[in-house]
Design a protein around this nucleic acid. Sequence first.
DNA 1: GGCCCTTCCTTGAACTTTGAACAAACCATG
DNA 2: CATGGTTTGTTCAAAGTTCAAGGAAGGGCC
Lengths: 169, 169
Amino acid sequence: MPPTPSPAGEPRWLDGDEQRVWRAYLQATTLLDDYLDRQLQRDAGMPHMYYGLLVQLSDAPRRRLRMTELAKNMKITRSRLSHAVARLEKSGWVRREDCPSDKRGQLAILTDDGYEVLRGTAPGHVSAVRQALFDRLTPEQQKSLGEIMTIVAEGLQPKEAGADLPWLR
Amino acid sequence: MPPTPSPAGEPRWLDGDEQRVWRAYLQATTLLDDYLDRQLQRDAGMPHMYYGLLVQLSDAPRRRLRMTELAKNMKITRSRLSHAVARLEKSGWVRREDCPSDKRGQLAILTDDGYEVLRGTAPGHVSAVRQALFDRLTPEQQKSLGEIMTIVAEGLQPKEAGADLPWLR
DNA sequence: GGCCCTTCCTTGAACTTTGAACAAACCATG
DNA sequence: CATGGTTTGTTCAAAGTTCAAGGAAGGGCC
């Protein structure tokens, strides 16, 4: 697509190295995502994202979380979460409860069935992740990956308005 | 989810560092994916994957590719591609043509309209990628990311049956 | 040619995601 | 304590993805 003028002057195209990095990134992430989706669909009967929701709940105190909390943790929209929880509820792995302190609120709660599914499928999932990712990387690469991904994630977070400057709100 | 026996002995759970890396990876990739999807949906009227298809076509000789080729390049299923191309065809950015050498085959061809859309939106897309990824990383980190992603991608490619051992087929 | 197996691509149904729109509850302010 | 703006979670419809099934063409082999 390169050489062509444009409204705001010539854009800085990706050079050869950058293009290779970007393509590798795109390919690796789609392959890994598909791989884990298939693995979990097969072994747990749910997509990767839904599995992640159960994990979040299992880590939370009393295995419950406000919908919005859960959505924030998973970086997904509330709409998407609503649908997902509805589905997980139908499967019997999550149930909802009204939030006592805020009548608008809903709590998503991991059921015992949900916990069992997680316990049963977590080992297989972890080894899939290891096999596809960690086992192939040196310790330095793992560290580097962590740093890079942390930077990228932080750069894309809709920054908490005044989270660190509360007096300016 | 950690301490619990399991069928095949105690699985090797992710340790603290590994968990942090994995979470950062998941968060960064979903945030980046959503970010670019929204960017392209807004500016080009299509999801990121579809944009990628147009890019592939624009890079191909005569701006055309067999469906299977295209699917392989993008690491997606032929089914998904079929639907996607159908949509892009409806938008007028791609058209199909029968493959002359193989009557089963279809060629996906980038139309002039498709090319124009690409030319118009590529600069904005590139700067989104830069801003979200490259501009935040040191040259060393970019290099490292490329290496890591290449390793992961290669590990997940359904290895070309006998591509390097053709005599064993 | 006839047979069988494979590859190529499409299709339809089920499922998931998106984005806009909405009602209910909260809350800051006057 | 009213009022207007915000937050919470859901809903609908449209769009995208998955998976299994299937028709058509290629290709090896007798």
